[in-house]
Design a protein around this nucleic acid. Structure first.
Length: 445
RNA sequence: UCCUCGGUAGCUCAAUCGGCAGAGCGGCCGGCUGUUAACCGGUUGGUUGUAGGUUCAAGUCCUGCCCGAGGAGCCA
């Protein structure tokens, strides 16, 4: 009876006979030699079955294995530079092999496939090595998020997913029949966070959020995960300091724990190693000047058209791409026009047309990963803004109420998990950064 | 919602001017002692997205619809 081990720990057992429980990801047979690539969830290892080393029925079983067949394989661990895997450098000289199940014809072959086919087979696609690596990075990112916040005085305070018709306008909300009354899936926990800081000081909510936008781009999901920290006695400058510490920690923690996964994904590690405080800070006005320069320089008429932007408009994806191309790590853009941002943002001192808002743009064209602001603390101004935005006052009465009892300057931001994982892993489309993506026209599987 | 491109074997694709619907991979059978998406030989595999139209003849041309991809807007 040999010891059962995990492939991740293979380097601890050179020369020993061990047993691995897993699945066949790939097989290349060569007469009396069968190379089995076996996956157990923790890693991948090559198991070599040589006809003369095993009983005839074991060799026959190895020969008959199909892709994704489940098996229990026993063999001697030996170092071998030729052996692929994760971690590589070791292989298993098979002495025994038990079949658990011969898999039927597996649809995902080691060749190229299109996105529609892969998404229809997402329940199988997650077994592929690239998806495996991305989702392991995601798990680390999620844990790093909680670690940093928990270690820096933020307390986790869950906010509701079923919400009344509040939010920031109802057009992008999914409606749910709540015992005959319409309610909506949350698109933010921020307003509740603002209530919670008066009891806990610094809080965060972390969960799925929902946007019914008919977006069809590589940066959008209808269901995505967002962490939203909120802090009392915190102005915009202090918020940016929190954000850069937070994001840097997430990236560095991922480099510590998931370096080999990032290498599998062929991510440029050095670009991530640069992600340390301080980040660049530019104002909206400065950003506008930079975009005008790019626009004047470019000879691409299409780009020229896409980059035209008036003072007062929010940036689109082309603007973010051009801006972030000028920096080698994340850049804050602060001080957006009041008119293009949400109703609750504090005005800039002496410039009411500008808000104390800040977006964090990831480099390499990944765009906005956080959006935040200092919130209005004055009850009269807040009520005025609610009127200006024609929001139903009764739905926001509790929110205004917060400003009656010890109102303080406070700030917060939201960070999109999928966009962050896409940036860190170098994944083009965020649909690969969540196990089961929800997009317009896709809720299966 | 708008713009562009696409839909042919399980998968990825080809099919010239409208003239017999093909290849690679996968599967199956056989061969091979170091394969890395192995290789070699054989074999299997089709309601060309859908409904109409034009034509002696439509994968190919025309019209509607459905589905997908990339982008815009909006956003994290």
């Amino acid at each position: 009876m040999s010891r059962s081990i995990r492939i991740a720990d293979i380097a601890s057992y050179p020369g020993e006979t061990v047993t691995i429980h897993g699945w066949l990801t790939l097989k290349t047979g060569k007469g009396q030699l069968q190379f089995l690539r076996v996956r157990d969830g923790t890693g991948i290892i090559q198991a070599v079955v040589f006809k003369k080393d095993v009983p005839a029925d074991v060799f026959e079983a190895a020969r008959r294995l199909t892709q994704e067949s489940s098996l229990v394989v026993t063999g001697v661990v030996r170092a071998d530079d030729r052996s692929p895997g994760m971690p590589g450098g070791y292989e298993l000289g098979v002495t025994d092999l038990q079949l658990v199940q011969i898999a039927g014809e597996y649809p995902i072959t080691p060749k190229e496939h299109g996105p529609e086919f892969l998404l229809d087979n997402r329940h199988l696609w997650i077994r592929s090595s690239r998806q495996w690596a991305i989702l392991r990075v995601r798990a680390t990112v999620v844990r790093a998020i909680r670690e940093w916040l928990d270690q820096n005085g933020f307390i986790n305070m869950d906010t509701p997913i079923l919400t009344p018709a509040a939010g920031e306008g109802t057009t992008t909300l999914f409606e749910v029949d709540y015992f005959g009354e319409p309610t909506y899936l949350a698109q933010t926990g921020q307003l509740y966070n603002e209530a919670n800081i008066y009891s806990f000081g610094r809080v965060y909510c972390f969960g799925p959020t929902f946007r019914a936008e008919k977006s069809k781009t590589r940066r959008h999901l209808t269901e995505f995960w967002m962490v939203e920290p909120e802090a009392a006695f915190c102005d915009l400058d202090q918020l940016m300091e929190i954000e850069e510490q937070f994001v840097s920690y997430i990236v560095q923690r991922t480099l510590d724990e998931r370096r080999s996964e990032l290498a599998m994904l062929e991510r440029d590690i050095r670009a991530l190693e640069r992600v340390t405080p301080p980040f660049y800070r530019i104002s909206y006005d400065d950003a506008l000047h930079r975009l005008a320069e790019v626009q004047a320089r470019t000879e691409d008429p299409e780009l020229k058209e896409l980059l035209s932007v008036e003072w007062g408009s929010d940036f689109g994806s082309p603007h973010e791409t051009e801006l972030t191309a000028q920096f080698d790590k994340p850049v804050f853009v602060y001080g957006f026009p009041t008119q293009c941002k949400a109703f609750y943002m504090e005005p800039w001192p002496g410039r009411p047309e500008v808000s104390k808002s800040v977006d964090l743009l990831a480099p390499e064209g990944y765009g906005e990963i956080t959006g935040g602001s200092e919130r209005i603390s004055d009850p009269d101004l807040l009520e005025q803004r609610i009127r200006e935005h024609q929001l139903p006052p009764e739905a926001f009465s509790w929110y205004v109420d917060l400003r009656q009892y010890g109102s303080v300057p406070h700030s917060g931001f939201g960070l999109g998990v999928e966009r962050t994982v896409a940036w860190i892993t170098g994944t083009k489309h965020i649909r690969e950064t969540v196990p089961y993506p929800r997009m317009i026209n896709r809720v299966y599987p």
